[in-house]
Protein backbone atom coordinates (compact mmCIF):
# COMPACT_ATOMS: atom_id res chain seq x y z
CA UNK A 1 0.00 0.00 0.00
CA UNK A 2 1.26 3.45 -0.88
CA UNK A 3 1.88 5.80 2.02
CA UNK A 4 -1.02 8.11 2.68
CA UNK A 5 -0.71 11.82 2.08
CA UNK A 6 -0.52 14.13 5.10
CA UNK A 7 -3.69 15.75 6.36
CA UNK A 8 -4.60 19.21 5.22
CA UNK A 9 -3.60 22.25 7.27
CA UNK A 10 -6.38 22.38 9.89
CA UNK A 11 -7.11 26.04 9.24
CA UNK A 12 -7.58 25.48 5.52
CA UNK A 13 -9.77 22.47 6.20
CA UNK A 14 -11.71 24.65 8.64
CA UNK A 15 -12.21 27.34 6.02
CA UNK A 16 -13.49 24.75 3.52
CA UNK A 17 -15.83 23.32 6.15
CA UNK A 18 -16.97 26.84 7.07
CA UNK A 19 -17.62 27.63 3.41
CA UNK A 20 -19.70 24.44 3.09
CA UNK A 21 -21.67 25.42 6.18
CA UNK A 22 -22.17 28.96 4.89
CA UNK A 23 -23.41 27.64 1.56
CA UNK A 24 -25.81 25.38 3.43
CA UNK A 25 -27.19 28.27 5.45
CA UNK A 26 -27.47 30.52 2.40
CA UNK A 27 -29.14 27.93 0.19
CA UNK A 28 -31.33 26.02 2.62
CA UNK A 29 -31.56 28.27 5.68
CA UNK A 30 -30.50 25.40 7.92
CA UNK A 31 -27.24 23.98 9.17
CA UNK A 32 -25.32 20.77 8.73
CA UNK A 33 -26.06 17.63 10.69
CA UNK A 34 -25.25 14.01 11.24
CA UNK A 35 -27.21 12.47 14.11
CA UNK A 36 -30.48 13.43 12.39
CA UNK A 37 -29.65 10.94 9.66
CA UNK A 38 -29.19 8.23 12.28
CA UNK A 39 -32.56 9.09 13.71
CA UNK A 40 -34.26 8.73 10.35
CA UNK A 41 -32.64 5.31 9.86
CA UNK A 42 -33.85 4.22 13.30
CA UNK A 43 -37.34 5.52 12.62
CA UNK A 44 -37.53 3.79 9.26
CA UNK A 45 -36.22 0.60 10.86
CA UNK A 46 -38.82 0.62 13.61
CA UNK A 47 -41.56 1.44 11.12
CA UNK A 48 -40.59 -1.56 8.97
CA UNK A 49 -39.99 -4.08 11.75
CA UNK A 50 -42.83 -3.14 14.08
CA UNK A 51 -45.41 -1.02 12.25
CA UNK A 52 -48.04 -1.37 14.99
CA UNK A 53 -45.64 -0.34 17.69
CA UNK A 54 -44.55 2.56 15.47
CA UNK A 55 -48.11 3.76 15.06
CA UNK A 56 -48.84 3.63 18.78
CA UNK A 57 -45.74 4.87 20.55
CA UNK A 58 -45.54 8.52 21.56
CA UNK A 59 -42.28 9.57 19.95
CA UNK A 60 -43.03 8.02 16.57
CA UNK A 61 -46.56 9.40 16.65
CA UNK A 62 -45.18 12.90 17.24
CA UNK A 63 -42.75 12.43 14.39
CA UNK A 64 -45.40 11.24 11.96
CA UNK A 65 -47.62 14.15 12.96
CA UNK A 66 -45.00 16.72 12.05
CA UNK A 67 -43.42 14.75 9.15
CA UNK A 68 -46.13 12.90 7.28
CA UNK A 69 -43.73 11.55 4.67
CA UNK A 70 -41.44 8.57 5.09
CA UNK A 71 -38.68 9.10 7.66
CA UNK A 72 -36.22 8.18 4.91
CA UNK A 73 -37.21 11.24 2.92
CA UNK A 74 -35.02 13.36 5.11
CA UNK A 75 -32.65 16.13 4.11
CA UNK A 76 -30.00 15.08 6.61
CA UNK A 77 -30.04 11.46 5.51
CA UNK A 78 -29.34 12.51 1.92
CA UNK A 79 -26.67 14.88 3.20
CA UNK A 80 -24.98 12.05 5.12
CA UNK A 81 -25.00 9.89 1.98
CA UNK A 82 -23.12 12.81 0.45
CA UNK A 83 -20.74 12.75 3.42
CA UNK A 84 -19.96 9.09 2.75
CA UNK A 85 -19.21 9.85 -0.90
CA UNK A 86 -17.16 12.96 -0.14
CA UNK A 87 -15.16 11.19 2.54
CA UNK A 88 -14.51 8.24 0.29
CA UNK A 89 -13.32 10.55 -2.48
CA UNK A 90 -11.02 12.41 -0.08
CA UNK A 91 -9.67 9.14 1.32
CA UNK A 92 -9.12 7.83 -2.19
CA UNK A 93 -7.03 10.76 -3.38
CA UNK A 94 -5.03 10.72 -0.15
CA UNK A 95 -4.49 6.93 -0.10
CA UNK A 96 -6.34 6.44 3.14
CA UNK A 97 -9.04 3.98 2.06
CA UNK A 98 -8.72 0.45 3.46
CA UNK A 99 -10.04 -1.76 6.21
CA UNK A 100 -8.53 -0.66 9.53
CA UNK A 101 -9.27 -0.69 13.21
CA UNK A 102 -7.99 2.27 15.22
CA UNK A 103 -7.47 2.24 18.97
CA UNK A 104 -5.23 3.70 21.63
CA UNK A 105 -1.78 2.10 22.02
CA UNK A 106 -2.60 0.35 25.31
CA UNK A 107 -6.22 -0.57 24.60
CA UNK A 108 -7.08 -4.18 23.79
CA UNK A 109 -9.34 -5.00 20.85
CA UNK A 110 -12.07 -6.18 23.20
CA UNK A 111 -11.86 -2.99 25.26
CA UNK A 112 -12.04 -0.86 22.14
CA UNK A 113 -15.00 -2.73 20.64
CA UNK A 114 -17.04 -2.41 23.83
CA UNK A 115 -16.03 1.21 24.33
CA UNK A 116 -16.76 2.32 20.79
CA UNK A 117 -20.25 0.77 20.77
CA UNK A 118 -20.99 2.15 24.24
CA UNK A 119 -19.64 5.56 23.24
CA UNK A 120 -21.74 5.52 20.11
CA UNK A 121 -24.84 4.62 22.09
CA UNK A 122 -24.21 7.44 24.57
CA UNK A 123 -23.62 9.91 21.76
CA UNK A 124 -26.69 8.75 19.89
CA UNK A 125 -28.83 9.01 23.00
CA UNK A 126 -27.38 12.38 24.02
CA UNK A 127 -27.80 13.83 20.53
CA UNK A 128 -31.53 13.17 20.66
CA UNK A 129 -31.88 14.59 24.15
CA UNK A 130 -29.72 17.63 23.31
CA UNK A 131 -31.43 18.20 19.92
CA UNK A 132 -28.34 17.73 17.82
CA UNK A 133 -24.77 16.60 17.85
CA UNK A 134 -21.47 18.32 17.26
CA UNK A 135 -22.44 19.19 13.69
CA UNK A 136 -26.08 20.13 14.01
CA UNK A 137 -26.07 21.76 17.39
CA UNK A 138 -22.56 22.92 18.22
CA UNK A 139 -21.10 23.87 14.82
CA UNK A 140 -24.23 25.05 13.04
CA UNK A 141 -25.44 26.65 16.27
CA UNK A 142 -22.25 28.66 16.58
CA UNK A 143 -22.56 29.95 13.01
CA UNK A 144 -26.05 31.31 13.63
CA UNK A 145 -25.27 32.35 17.24
CA UNK A 146 -27.83 30.07 18.83
CA UNK A 147 -27.57 30.10 22.61
CA UNK A 148 -28.73 26.48 22.86
CA UNK A 149 -26.12 25.37 20.32
CA UNK A 150 -23.34 27.02 22.27
CA UNK A 151 -24.54 25.55 25.60
CA UNK A 152 -24.58 22.09 24.01
CA UNK A 153 -21.11 22.65 22.59
CA UNK A 154 -19.79 23.66 26.03
CA UNK A 155 -21.40 20.62 27.64
CA UNK A 156 -20.02 18.18 25.04
CA UNK A 157 -16.45 19.39 25.26
CA UNK A 158 -16.65 20.12 28.99
CA UNK A 159 -18.02 16.63 29.66
CA UNK A 160 -15.34 14.99 27.56
CA UNK A 161 -12.55 16.95 29.26
CA UNK A 162 -13.97 16.13 32.67
CA UNK A 163 -14.05 12.40 31.91
CA UNK A 164 -10.80 12.25 29.93
CA UNK A 165 -8.73 11.35 32.99
CA UNK A 166 -10.88 8.31 33.80
CA UNK A 167 -10.65 6.86 30.31
CA UNK A 168 -6.97 7.56 29.69
CA UNK A 169 -6.22 3.83 29.42
CA UNK A 170 -8.26 3.76 26.24
CA UNK A 171 -6.12 6.38 24.57
CA UNK A 172 -2.76 7.06 26.17
CA UNK A 173 0.50 5.18 26.34
Amino acid sequence: MKTSKPYMNPYFAGIILGAVLLATIYITGRGLGASGAMKSIVLAGVETVAPEHYAETLYYKNYTASNPESPLKNWLLIEVIGVVLGTFFSGLIANRVGIAFDKGPKATNRMRIIAVILGGALFGFGSQLGRGCTSGSALSGMAVMSLGGIITMGAIFGGAYFLAYFFRKLWLR
Binding site: A115, L118, F123, F125, L129, T134, S135, T152, I156, G159
Partner: peptide
Protein backbone atom coordinates in the same frame (compact mmCIF):
# COMPACT_ATOMS: atom_id res chain seq x y z
CA UNK B 1 -29.04 20.80 26.16
CA UNK B 2 -26.87 20.47 29.25
CA UNK B 3 -27.59 16.82 30.10
CA UNK B 4 -27.63 15.80 26.45
CA UNK B 5 -24.34 17.61 25.95
CA UNK B 6 -22.70 15.93 28.94
CA UNK B 7 -23.85 12.49 27.79
CA UNK B 8 -22.48 13.27 24.33
CA UNK B 9 -19.21 14.34 25.96
CA UNK B 10 -19.01 10.95 27.68
CA UNK B 11 -19.75 9.26 24.37
CA UNK B 12 -17.02 11.29 22.71
CA UNK B 13 -14.26 10.32 25.16
CA UNK B 14 -15.36 6.69 25.46
CA UNK B 15 -16.08 6.03 21.81
CA UNK B 16 -13.60 8.45 20.28
CA UNK B 17 -15.96 9.83 17.65
CA UNK B 18 -18.97 12.01 17.19
CA UNK B 19 -21.74 10.98 14.76
CA UNK B 20 -20.39 12.95 11.78
Amino acid sequence: ALTGGLIMGAGFIIGGFCPG
